[in-house]
Design a binder for these strands. Structure first.
Lengths: 222, 222
DNA sequence: TATTGCTTTACGGTTTCCCGTAAGGAAAAT
DNA sequence: ATTTTCCTTACGGGAAACCGTAAAGCAATA
């Protein structure tokens, strides 16, 4: 039972054009699209009020800021907001993100129905995903399934991220306890800071803080 | 004088579709496309041999690896290889990259003719870029021009980049002289390393190495 | 209340880093 | 050849980070 009404939230105009074209090729005629998260939520709520709801939301994860200030920042927040008003809409995420932990979270915590990565054969993958979801299955491409399985990445929590952020801003390690107290983050002792840094370095097989900063920058953690 | 023959090197199928569509809308009918760098170079050389050369290459920067092992890795290498066989072809880079240093390098060192970022209004930007380049102008969108202009007060040279790379890989500062000697980079003394680090931190108003690593990651310097 | 187990904090010794100063060395100028 | 200048290297004292261990806090349990 193919979808009838689809909403596309994607800020790259070129990519949005392609998604529309692909949808069209599947014979879905009632398609709306937007370049902004706030608009996407607005269209969803409006369609509910009009008693003509969307069946599927195809959304990117990263949206760039511009002059139009948004309340909703990024695809994750959008999915949460949409789920809050329209719990049963199917959601297909279409993004370049390929970090196992992040994708795993999308399925487990946000309950998305499919994930297609912007990559070499994304057009065919997108069609397959829409097809699968319309038949009440979930979709995740084979290569990503493997990556998700072997996710042995360290889970950074708020304390970890705060510590590394402070370091990357030039705060002396011995002064970090003061900053943590200001933010009411516990534990805040210098030894705890040292312990956490050692845990992170141990888990990732690093020896220096500089490596942690580089790693967190690479993976968008800070 | 609009282009007649255009080659598209772009590994994301969806994005490639959109680029083709955009080109078509400009009235350019002789278009070839490929998902691989090696194929792109091959098509360029073949067109030269056939005495029917391409006028314009539109290429992405990042290409993902897959089962087809490539000699040319990424858009930068592709541009260098293409320039080597066909010096006068116009080159338009179409990428998500928004690091000032990287984009600046593309124009100054690789001599590209235009840069369009994959972003909100990329379709209209791509058309404008092709239009501009066909009139022997270069193209860089206004927002990126600003970023490139106000780029770093400090010019990182090979020594700087090597030092910061080593730090970000976990090498102890006191061991850096050894690594520099292995790479035959001079000066290599520990004091010189310290001096350089201080120069960089002074110029950027930083106090710790962690800040330098974060900065260089942000601007794509390492 | 006392015990147990766990987490957080405090402390001291060692290593590394930081920073100023002085010595060494090469190239240019006289 | 000598001086000047600039850059590189060496060294040493003090600050910060690193690391192990011990003490203190705290919650759960009996």
């Amino acid at each position: 039972m193919m979808f009838k009404k689809v909403l596309i939230a994607e800020d790259q105009e070129m990519m949005s054009i392609s998604v529309r074209k692909t949808i069209e090729e599947l014979g879905i005629t009632c398609t709306k699209y937007t370049y902004y998260c706030d608009d996407a939520l607005m269209l969803i709520t409006k369609s509910l009020n009009d008693d003509d709801p969307f069946d599927l939301l195809i959304t990117d994860l990263s949206f760039e800021e511009d002059h139009r200030k948004q309340k909703i920042n990024g695809g994750i927040e959008l999915i949460q907001a949409v789920k809050a008003v329209h719990a049963h809409i199917k959601i297909l995420v279409f993004s370049v993100e390929n970090k196992a932990a992040a994708i795993d979270m999308l399925f487990k915590e946000l309950g998305i129905n499919g994930y297609v990565r912007k990559a070499r054969h994304d057009a065919i993958a997108l069609k397959a995903a829409i097809e699968a979801i319309s038949n009440n299955r979930t979709y995740l491409s084979a290569d990503l399934k493997q990556i998700v399985k072997q996710k042995n990445t360290y889970e950074f929590d708020a304390l970890d991220i705060t510590i590394i952020s402070l370091l990357s801003q030039g705060v002396l390690q011995k002064n970090i306890p003061y900053h943590l107290q200001e933010k009411s983050i516990r534990p805040s002792g210098l030894s705890s800071v040292e312990k956490r840094l050692n845990q992170m370095k141990e888990a990732l097989d690093f020896s220096k803080n500089e490596q942690l900063v580089a790693y967190c920058k690479d993976y968008g953690i800070i």
